[in-house]
Simulated assay, not measured.
Amino acid sequence: MNVLSEDQRQQITDIVVGILEIDPAELTDESLFKEDHDADSLRAIEILAALEREFKVEINQAELARMVNLQGIYQVIAEYTGNRA
Rank of each mutant, 00 (worst) to 15 (best):
M1K: 07
M1N: 08
N2H: 15
V3G: 09
L4T: 05
S5G: 15
E6M: 07
E6D: 13
D7T: 11
D7L: 10
Q8G: 02
Q8H: 08
R9P: 00
Q10P: 00
Q10E: 12
Q11S: 12
Q11E: 15
Q11H: 04
I12Q: 12
I12F: 01
D14M: 09
D14C: 05
V17R: 14
G18I: 06
G18E: 08
I19G: 07
I19P: 03
L20I: 05
L20H: 04
L20F: 00
E21S: 14
E21I: 02
E21A: 13
I22P: 01
D23R: 06
P24W: 03
P24C: 11
A25F: 00
A25Y: 02
A25W: 00
E26K: 12
D29F: 01
E30W: 00
S31D: 04
L32K: 13
L32S: 03
F33V: 02
F33T: 02
K34Q: 14
E35L: 13
D36V: 03
D36L: 09
A39E: 04
A39R: 14
D40Q: 06
D40F: 01
S41I: 03
S41N: 09
S41M: 12
L42V: 14
L42P: 02
R43T: 05
R43I: 04
R43K: 13
A44Q: 15
A44C: 15
I45W: 02
I47C: 07
I47Q: 06
L48H: 05
L48S: 07
A49F: 04
A49C: 07
A49H: 03
A49N: 08
A50S: 14
L51M: 12
L51T: 04
E52C: 11
E52Q: 15
R53F: 01
R53L: 12
R53C: 05
E54K: 12
F55A: 10
F55L: 14
K56Q: 12
V57L: 11
V57E: 06
V57W: 03
E58F: 03
I59N: 10
I59C: 13
N60P: 02
Q61Y: 03
E63W: 02
E63G: 03
E63V: 07
L64R: 12
R66W: 00
M67T: 09
M67G: 04
V68Q: 11
N69I: 14
N69M: 15
L70V: 05
L70K: 10
Q71R: 13
Q71C: 03
Q71Y: 01
G72C: 08
I73G: 06
Y74D: 10
Y74W: 10
Y74T: 06
I77W: 02
I77Q: 07
E79A: 10
Y80W: 00
Y80R: 11
G82D: 05
G82R: 08
G82A: 11
G82S: 09
G82H: 05
G82T: 07
R84W: 01
A85S: 05
